[in-house]
Simulated scan of single mutants.
Amino acid sequence: MKNKRLSLGADIAYMILLVMLFVCVAFIVFSENVSFNVAALCIVFAILIISHFTAVTFGLILNTVVIFAGFSWYLYRQFSYGIPIQSDFYFWVIVTPLLTVISNTIFRNMLQIEEENIKLRKWAQHFSIVDDMTELKNIQAYEMEFPVYQRIAARYKIGFMLIVWQFRYADDLKRIIGKKGMEQTVAELSKVMANTFRREDVVYILSKDPYEWGILLLTNENSEELLKTRIKEKMQEMDFSEILGKNAPRLDVRVGVHFIEEDEDTPLLALEKAKNKLQYDV
Score class of each variant (00 low, 15 high):
F22V: 11
T229R: 11
M144C: 04
F22S: 12
M1T: 11
F127N: 00
R230M: 08
T229N: 11
V25E: 03
V25T: 09
D131W: 11
R198D: 04
A153G: 07
N195K: 10
E143D: 09
S80A: 11
A248P: 11
A13C: 07
E135A: 08
R151M: 07
F89V: 08
F68Y: 10
R155N: 13
H126Y: 09
T105P: 02
Y169P: 01
K232L: 01
I139C: 05
P84E: 07
V164G: 01
L226T: 08
H258E: 14
N37D: 14
E262Y: 14
R121S: 14
P249N: 04
I260C: 13
T134W: 09
E242M: 12
V130A: 05
N247I: 05
R230F: 02
I16W: 11
E261V: 08
L269M: 13
T134A: 08
N222T: 11
I163M: 15
D239Y: 04
Y90R: 09
K174V: 00
Q78E: 12
M110G: 12
L217S: 12
A124I: 05
L136H: 03
V56R: 09
M133S: 10
V192K: 08
G159L: 10
S190Q: 06
I205G: 01
D265F: 15
M110W: 10
K232Q: 07
V192P: 00
E135Y: 08
M133R: 07
D263L: 10
F58Y: 12
L6Y: 06
Y76Q: 03
V38A: 04
F107R: 13
K137N: 13
V23D: 10
V255I: 05
I139Y: 02
K273P: 01
L18P: 06
S223M: 12
E116W: 05
T64S: 13
A10R: 02
I113V: 13
C24P: 02
R175I: 03
N222V: 11
V282R: 15
V257P: 02
K174F: 00
L271F: 12
A46P: 02
I113T: 04
I67Y: 06
